[in-house]
Write a protein that binds this DNA or RNA. Structure first.
Lengths: 336, 336
DNA sequence: TCAACGAGATAAAACGATTTACGTAAATCG
DNA sequence: CGATTTACGTAAATCGTTTTATCTCGTTGA
């Protein structure tokens, strides 16, 4: 039971070789005589040796770490994103550091600085605002990075997100084709470009059908707030025949508001949810939902990041993945 | 626009002092003349200097990193736990590394080894099985650690979990007091001690009322599986008047199974859910739920871990927090 | 036969922060 | 006033790995 974990020197000594040789065996950086290599591997096994990542990092300058910074670790969309990315990295010898900016620009900046001090191999950011001020910070650190989900205008880095315009459009199209004309759009915060794109997509469909744009409510960034805001709106206006939620939290808010008011789905109001979670299906009237392909998003993020880490130097790539509408029982033509 | 990030030497040069002094200013390890300190701080500011954590780690031997290993990053309970812990660490200069063992002992072992190579200051583990083989690995690395949620028998480390016996008991008590006699318990996997404790707690209440133990169904570790297993059980047996779910996934499974079969809650079957998420409340009949105090659990974990990191050497502490029953509309006395 | 060559190992020099050991000047004490 | 302590800086050693420069020794070609 050694006080200190074994070092490369211990391994070298036990195998009767120099530390350099041990390193070469373990990393395959240069050829090593097979017999020696075997002796080294035995010693490694016997001592339970694990290279100290910090020392390796210090020498090589790049940690096998991917940092992920999201606005909110309580938002299931972001955590599922983290999970999807983690699944990709797991077998590739990378670790993942997560941090939450808690929706605050200041926190985003400070967390980012702290994370960059680890000199991670790559960075995934879901910015908490469109301006994304800390970009300068990242570029000074020269870390490959991917901006996910919330893409900012004129980005200088690879971005991966869904086709937000289309996401809004497919939802609205489904409603219009079901003869809905009085539709409420429940967005989270219109300061976010992705949210505006979803709204525009939805309203473009209305326009194509010669219909006026739908009212949009800014329901806020968490479920409780969304419930009161949407509830408030419902109390103050004539009821729409359908609600198009553009966020998983606004979906929850709409559900809560409707439930509180005993408004039947879809008989009185149809509802389209955003994202697709198990709880949306585990209902008497399962929710029609606009599903973001989270695993695919995670995989694409890793694909782009990996390419950049390996030195790809092409112009920024912008990936926009398609959302899918899953039609279920929460939408139906309005009662006459 | 420097090619390399600034090092402590650059700062020292700019401030006209030695690197050692810069270190002392930044870490406060030894007193430094105020005027010099100011000059150093200016230089740090001007160069945007951030100490290379790897170098510091190599010298000091302990990273300001907390590693968290959970069985499943798609389980909202575990992600909310991560979020709660992250919230505690955020302002304390620690970073958090997350990894998922994916419910596999082998993965758990290998992820743990990889993480320990970073020599983290502390470790939080939710073991994926009760035997928790990798414990030896951790102890050899001499890293302070806390076992969370799934506590194993005779643990040699601090543990934080809920009082599982009590959690099962309060759920069952509520049902019994509402005159339910035919109750189905939906557990995830009985190989887990915490699951068995919840069952025992529930059945003890039955026993106290002179009632026979309730049937227990092993619904499995994800929502889809739980839905088919619970559905299958319902099809094969006379319906119970209530279901007590002991996991958030089995709650979802029960809801899905009941919805599919058009069984009304609570009129035909009452349901108690486990954990407490927004979606449980955003329903026409909000779910009565057994709430685990996640934030408190996270805070306690950090409290214990911090104490150990700071050298506390007392005997292992075992924290068991109380769950709370939130009574809502999904439970009612059975129809005659 | 001998210089040139290679294959493959080793010794030694980084990497950048922390920390120990030491030096120097000012302050304090007897 | 000289000796000693105090305060505070600096130089240098150190952490464990990777990598570069060297070194050794058996092989080969002329």
């Amino acid at each position: 039971m050694p006080k200190k974990p074994a070092s490369i020197r211990d391994v070298a000594e036990r195998a009767g070789v120099s530390p350099g040789t041990v390193s070469n065996v373990l990393n395959g950086s240069r050829p090593v005589n097979a017999a020696l290599a075997e002796r080294v591997r035995e010693a490694v096994e016997a001592l339970g040796y694990q290279a100290d990542r910090a020392a390796a990092l210090l020498r090589t300058g790049k940690a096998r770490i991917i940092a992920v910074l999201v606005p909110d670790l309580d938002n299931p969309f972001f955590t599922s994103l983290v999970s999807a990315i983690e699944a990709c990295l797991r077998d590739q010898g990378y670790e993942i550091i997560v941090a939450s900016s808690n929706g605050s620009d200041a926190t985003e900046q400070s967390r980012l600085a702290a994370i960059l001090a680890w000199r991670p191999a790559g960075l995934v950011v879901v910015p908490c605002s469109d301006s994304f001020a800390p970009r300068a910070l990242i570029e000074r650190a020269r870390v490959p990075y991917v901006i996910a989900d919330r893409i900012t205008q004129d980005p200088t880095a690879d971005t991966v997100s869904v086709d937000n315009f289309d996401a809004g459009a497919i939802g609205m199209r489904h409603l219009v084709e079901n003869s809905h004309r009085a539709i409420l759009i429940a967005a989270s915060e219109l300061r976010l470009a992705n949210m505006r794109a979803r709204c525009t997509g939805a309203n473009t469909v209305l326009d194509q059908h010669g219909l006026p744009p739908a009212p949009v409510i800014e329901a806020g960034g968490d479920a409780a707030l969304a419930a009161t805001r949407i509830g408030g709106w419902l109390d103050a206006h004539p009821h729409p025949t359908a609600i198009l939620a553009l966020t998983n939290f606004t979906t929850l808010g709409a559900l809560a508001a409707l439930a509180e008011r005993n408004i039947a789905i879809p008989h009185q109001i149809s509802l389209i949810g955003f994202d697709d979670y198990a709880w949306m299906r585990a209902r008497a009237t399962p929710l029609t939902a606009i599903r973001q392909p989270v695993e695919e998003i995670g995989a694409k993020i890793w694909e782009r990041l990996k390419a950049r880490i390996e030195g790809e130097d092409s112009r920024p790539v912008h990936v926009a993945l398609r959302c899918e509408l899953h039609q279920r029982a929460s939408t139906a033509p309005p009662a006459i």
